[in-house]
Write a protein that binds this DNA or RNA. Structure first.
Length: 770
RNA sequence: AGGGGCGUGGGCUAGCGGUAAGCCACGGGAUUUUGGUUCCCGCUGACGUAGGUUCGAAUCCUACCGCCCCUGCCA
């Protein structure tokens, strides 16, 4: 009620952009979706597409579809076409498709600028030497012998690289940054490599190609991207992104923001691995309905709106997470349920003979939509003395809770009659070949005039009129919910596709491929866009219906065997990183003054070891603290304020830049200690001192923060709050003691933080209990 | 001389010093000619751990723990 749903940001990027727009950091929003055309888009890309296009839409901006085609060897026009097609299919407006390769000339000129400025050089080391020179996570790298060659020499070499004077791998262009940078990416990253390869767009015009780190930020700058949104694994790359944007004379200053990529249970998102599935023939192509690709989901029968709503449901954050597959199923079911017609199909036929059927065929009128779907329409379905029902719908020895057909049991055939099983016929192998039933002519349409009820309603088909159809049932491609492992190929689900020869009702005989239906009680299906045609119908199961009976029977089965042991984890060989505590210890080890202060604070001022430690890990901070004491602040209070409040402020900027002085802090502490300022109001004054500096007493006076000393005024504020919140009062008196915080907060707000919290609490407790 | 990130119920996500919220899943019930849908109820279940600041901490400070990413001439 307080905040309208539409105005509340859904994720941190919306919040950030809203702030940027509000503060005038950007006048508008321009995002981009930048796939490399080396594979088909998958559901993980769909998340990114919905995010980037969605953000642009929401804030009235633009989103570019840009092919990041900087590596000719893996890329192909087939992929650029499929990508553009998929993005449009997902429902987003794609203007002109853009290509990084269109910017090659500009990028090249900027590279020359870098060389001329002495910030890039041509390195003739081979691959192994470059790798070795990079150092390791814990050791700095070593500089290339070519690093300090004259700019003119690099320029000449670079021009000859472009001209094709050298073979692949002979040399590279590198940025000259810092071989000792703790971020490995900053250790003179490669900018250009030689590749005598045919590019899908530029053909043979180039034989040098820019690397991702060099190209991407420049592409963004050229397009005037404001928010370059990518996945978490690029966090380390942000530093080189910023370095280039800030170093080069580019037309815009885009910045990069990262979010967690999608991980979905039972599916793999690696383009490399998906490609292998396609190439090995494990699946029938990129659009195999088992594939997590957009093309696969589309052929499977997923709608674009379901995929969009799925992306909306899962949210966007920076936490590495996996999404429950059920969420995707939920999205498609809720999309299809109110839309698609219900028809009947039998996947695994079992013949039923109605022994008292008079003969002939009766055509029944059957609604296409259930009572709760507000859509009109019906079709005719034939009923006769020879029917098919689902094998699963008959049990010779039914388990407890069985609602379906069994010897002696009566069920309803949907839209038809009640039938009662009178017996079975067996084939030579002893298996049931037919089920014998009688029908009750009085139950035409499925209702009994005598009002008797049946537990189960079955779907069925008249055998002679039923139309044969291939029915493809899909399950997860992988048997493991976390197939993203080394041995992923061993985790393939051997039963991911089951092909059945079943039947559908005659109204589907002329079905147009690509139509979706609910096959009653079986699930949602789509006629296969590639393989289905009249006379040879093929249906893909999109998703099953929720099935509480299956869940029930599963629950009754003996517990599943314990999960297979997860592959042995590799021993952790990562270097441990230093905690801040360790860093402070090292600093003191090299700084006698700080070491002395550390001892002094404990011995002379009686600080705890922890407080002394924190306060003497940095010369500025230590000096600030001691100056605050010297300015007259009480030791314990000064310690609390500096440790808890000042420390937070110096996280993003050095103490020296803060307008806050030790004298001002000491003054503030004095006001609080004297009871003239509540701690709450004191923090407000502190915030102002940090922001603007000044005199604490003057700030207190100017903002009217002096503690409420008049008991009557406090009581009035308390009573006003109680009077204004009758509902909360009732709940508080009903036992919700946690609400006390709410009331105190209200009083604090009403008094501008001037109320004495302890007195407020006491008064509130008293008034509320009466 | 390592650096960069992330930890909120079974899963995902919100929260930005003042009543821990939403969706999925799960469990009940009602309605139902789909064991579907819809509706209602429940979840006596969560703030990684430990200290500290505060009247009050998921939120601020400190330490610790766990997980992810980075040593391609891939993106």
């Amino acid at each position: 009620m307080s905040t309208p749903e539409e105005t509340r940001p859904k994720n941190f990027l919306e919040t950030l952009i809203a702030e940027h727009l509000r503060d005038g950091v950007h006048a508008g929003v321009v995002t981009r979706f930048p796939p490399e055309p080396n594979g088909y888009l998958h559901i993980g890309h769909a998340k990114s597409i919905c995010l980037n296009f969605g953000l642009a839409q929401q804030f009235g901006g633009r989103c570019n579809l840009r092919m990041d085609d900087t590596n000719p060897v893996a890329e192909d026009v087939e992929y650029v076409e499929s990508i553009a097609n998929d993005v449009r299919w997902l429902g987003f407006e794609v203007g002109e498709v853009l290509f990084a390769s269109d910017y090659f000339e500009q990028m090249y000129r900027w590279a020359e600028d870098l060389i001329v400025a002495g910030k890039a050089y041509v390195d003739e080391q081979d691959l192994e030497a470059i790798r070795a020179g990079r150092g390791s996570l814990t050791e700095p790298g070593t500089e290339s012998p070519y690093r300090n060659r004259p700019a003119a020499e690099s320029l000449d070499l670079f021009r000859r690289m472009r001209a094709g004077a050298f073979p692949d791998g002979a040399m590279v262009l590198r940025a000259k940054i810092d071989m000792a940078n703790p971020n490995m990416i900053m250790r003179d990253p490669l900018l250009y490599r030689i590749r005598h390869a045919h590019h899908h767009r530029t053909g043979d015009a180039w034989c040098i190609y820019p690397m991702y780190d060099y190209a991407h930020c420049l592409e963004d700058a050229i397009e005037g991207i404001t928010h370059s949104i990518c996945t978490l694994e690029f966090e380390n790359n942000r530093e080189i992104y910023d370095w280039l944007i800030d170093t080069l004379d580019v037309p815009a200053k885009p910045r990069q923001y990262e979010f967690a990529r999608l991980a979905l249970d039972y599916t793999l998102m690696s383009k490399r691995k998906l490609l292998k599935l396609v190439q090995s023939g494990t699946v029938r192509g990129w659009d195999d309905p088992r594939m997590p690709t957009v093309a696969g989901l589309r052929r499977r029968g997923y709608t674009a709106s379901a995929i969009r709503s799925f992306c909306d449901l899962i949210g966007v954050s920076k936490a590495n997470s996996r999404v429950d597959f059920g969420k995707l199923e939920f999205a498609i079911r809720s999309d299809l349920n109110p839309e698609v017609p219900r028809v009947m199909a039998v996947a695994r036929p079992l013949e039923v003979v109605i022994t008292n059927w008079p003969g002939g065929v009766e055509w029944l009128d059957a609604a296409l939509y259930p009572h709760d779907v507000p859509k009109e329409g019906s079709r005719q379905v034939p009923f006769s003395g020879r029917l098919y029902i689902e094998q699963d719908d008959f049990a010779e020895e039914p388990p407890a809770g069985w609602h379906r057909l069994a010897p002696g049991r009566e069920v309803r055939l949907r839209y038809g009659y009640f039938i009662t099983c009178t017996g079975v016929e067996r084939g030579p192998d002893g298996a049931i070949s037919r089920v014998l039933c009688t029908y009750d002519p009085a139950t035409a349409g499925g209702a009994a005039p005598d009002g008797r009820k049946v537990k189960g309603t079955l779907h069925w088909l008249s055998a002679d009129e039923a139309v044969p159809a291939e029915i493809r049932l899909y399950d997860h491609l992988f048997a493991s919910d976390t197939p993203d492992r080394e041995d992923w190929e061993a985790l393939l689900n051997p039963n991911s596709l089951e092909v059945l020869q079943g039947f559908v009702e005659p109204s589907l005989a002329d079905d147009a491929a690509g139509s979706r239906y609910q096959f009653e009680r079986l699930g949602y299906f789509i006629s296969d866009a590639v393989d289905s045609r009249p006379g040879a119908l093929v249906f893909n199961r999109i998703v099953t219906l929720r099935d509480s009976w299956a869940k029930q029977t599963k629950k009754d089965e003996p517990a599943a065997p314990p999960p297979a042991p997860v592959a042995e984890k590799k021993p952790d060989t990562r270097p441990t990183k230093l905690g801040r505590a360790e860093i402070r210890v090292r600093i003191r080890a090299e700084d006698a003054d700080l070491a002395a202060a550390y001892a002094r604070l404990q011995a002379d001022l009686g600080l705890s070891e922890e407080d002394a430690d924190v306060l003497t890990g940095d010369r500025e901070l230590a000096a600030f603290f001691e100056a605050t004491i010297a300015a007259g602040a009480e030791v314990a209070a000064a310690t609390r304020w500096v440790v808890n409040e000042v420390l937070r402020e110096v996280k993003d900027r050095p103490l020296g830049e803060l307008p806050l002085t030790p004298a001002a802090l000491a003054g503030l502490i004095g006001l609080v200690d004297a009871g003239r300022l509540s701690v709450t109001a004191g923090k407000e004054v502190f915030a102002e001192l940090v922001a603007q500096g000044g005199d604490p007493a003057a700030i207190m006076a100017a903002r009217g923060l002096e503690q409420l000393s008049d008991a009557g005024a406090l009581a009035a504020a308390v009573d006003a709050v109680i009077a204004a919140s009758p509902a909360q009062v009732e709940r508080y008196r009903g036992g919700n003691a946690g609400l006390l915080g709410f009331f105190i907060g209200q009083v604090m707000k009403a008094t501008g933080g001037r109320a004495d919290p302890a007195a407020t609490r006491a008064l509130l407790t008293e008034r509320l209990s009466s």
